[in-house]
Amino acid sequence: MNKIRVIARLDIKNEFVIKGIHLEGLRKIGDPNELAKKYYKQGADEIIFMDAVAAYYDRNSLNHILEKTCEDVFVPITVGGGIRSIEDIQNALKSGADKVAINTKAIQDPVFLETASKIFGSQCIIVSIEAKKIADGKWEAYVDNGREPTGLDVMEWSKQAEGLGAGEILITSVDADGTKRGFDIELNAKIASQVCLPVIASGGAGSNRDVIDLLATAKVSALSVASLLHYDLSTIGTLKRNIHQAHFKVRL
């Protein structure tokens, strides 16, 4: 069995870490650099910075946050939100990111994923999918932080993204995000069973138990947590010990 990665996800708006519910109704949490450092010290396996409004306002502004964070944080850092050109990826990597998460641009122009993974290697390119349940066993891909439907079926899109050279899939459940009521297990299980890529589950973790429940059913490689850490409901260390006690492997 391989080690499950526990990733701290920091959604960012105007220089602040924020957290919403269903990706909306954003509430200020704190300073991105300080929180990234705190979660790194707690033993986070990776950090994700997600610009919550970049796609909406057509910009990308996390690079200076990255530059500072990567002076103190020595685990992989992913940046997402507003990545829409090869130059954006170059700038993010130059600023200290190891990977980029791409949603809107990949949906508008799937060939972009192929081009980007050829240039930077697939290990650098995460396809970020925002999924909203529309019927039993059916999810639709959204963009702009769960605001805009695309008409794309999440399962079909994830298969296609794998074929285009994405290296990982970050699947955010818009329905579960911020609710602290647990992951959309069915969504994560289904997506992980049909692609060969590592899948990162995101959205909904409100307790250590939620994470164990996810892992018991869905063959995900990683999971991201936000509210759980931001609201001091747990720490990375406690969560990882719980995962370990439930007989899954983690880096302790």
């Binding site: 391989n2 080690k3 990665r5 290296g167 992980a192 069973s193 692609v195 060969c196 890529l197 590592p198």
Partner: peptide, 16 residues
């Protein structure tokens, strides 16, 4: 040599 998701996932991303 990993062919499908039953015997592992590629790329190998994570801690070993």
């Amino acid at each position: 040599p990993i062919q499908d998701s039953n015997n592992g996932r590629l790329p190998h991303v994570g801690w070993g």
